[in-house]
């Protein structure tokens, strides 16, 4: 079992090396990158906006309902919303959700190409199929922090709307809370995490799709396994990066 995991991890790193070998012609690659930006980033805007807005609202309401002590100032609702959304919700939990949305899309599309021999066709033609299929996804997901930036903004906006229009806090108090003890490095920390997660989101599902064997049923199984491993990796790297960047 352990040997199998170690073999798989070794194979994953060999795949990473191969992705950057023998580059596809730029005239072809640029079209692939634009297509991936459209599929992966632009195509996720709607769901990210929807989830961020409402979860931000729920965080604000939950915080407000739990601040029962009159000695605790209400602006902490804004403070808690900002901290939760910027530090964890937007970079980490949106990434776990994207492991399901983008990850299963990547695994199933590459897996289907494997099953229908399209990857063999690329290889037989002399194309570096890993570079052709995975490299554009990595480049497209360099725009992933842009998506997370929108999630941060909409999360805090959702918190403000739920707090103010729900009658829990005044607008001035909420804004005061969001500006209180603001540490700019927290934004950098969130975006550093996001970039690492983007790399995991592009490569782990690709790995599971590319090396899958079998037929249509196995494509479904590979998508599930890919979601599990991408989520586990995101949570694990979240812990390591938090310890490294904020722990000292």
């Amino acid at each position: 079992m352990l040997i199998r995991y170690i073999t798989q991890i070794g194979r994953y790193f060999l795949m990473l090396k191969e992705i950057f070998n023998k580059q596809t012609k730029w005239s072809v690659m640029k079209n692939l990158i634009f297509k991936e930006i459209d599929d992966l980033v632009i195509g996720s805007l709607g769901i990210v906006a929807f989830i961020s807005f409402f979860v931000g609202g729920v965080v604000a309401i939950q915080t407000a309902l739990n601040l029962t002590n009159p000695l605790i100032p209400k602006y902490l609702i804004g403070f808690a919303t900002r901290q939760s959304v910027i530090l964890e919700f937007a970079p980490t939990f949106i990434s776990v959700i994207m492991a399901g949305k983008m990850g299963s899309f990547i695994t199933s599309s590459i897996g289907t190409m494997r099953v229908t021999e399209q990857i063999d066709a690329l290889e037989v033609m002399g194309v570096n199929s890993l570079n052709y299929l995975v490299f554009p996804k990595i480049i497209a997901l360099l725009l992933y922090p842009f998506l997370i930036g929108i999630a941060m903004f909409l999360g805090v906006l959702g918190g403000w709307m739920a707090g103010v229009y729900g009658g829990f806090i005044s607008s001035a108090e909420f804004i005061n809370g969001t500006q209180m003890d603001f540490i700019p490095f927290h934004i950098a920390y969130a975006f550093i995490k996001t970039l690492i997660f983007a790399m995991l989101l592009a490569t782990i599902p690709s790995f599971h799709g590319y090396y899958m064997k079998g037929g249509a049923l196995e494509v479904g199984k590979a998508s599930t396994v890919s979601f599990v491993w991408t989520s586990v990796s995101i949570i694990l790297f979240n812990y390591i990066l938090t310890q490294l960047l904020l722990g000292s």
Binding site: K22, T112, M113, T116, E117, Q118, D120, A121, E123, V124, M125, G126, N128
Partner: peptide, 22 residues
């Protein structure tokens, strides 16, 4: 590896399921 890729550009293949790009 480069010579292998070069050789592969001299090969045409018709797969059983056609393997056309969807």
């Amino acid at each position: 590896p480069d010579e292998k890729r070069e050789l592969r550009t001299e090969i045409g293949m018709v797969f059983q399921g056609s393997a056309l790009f969807d």
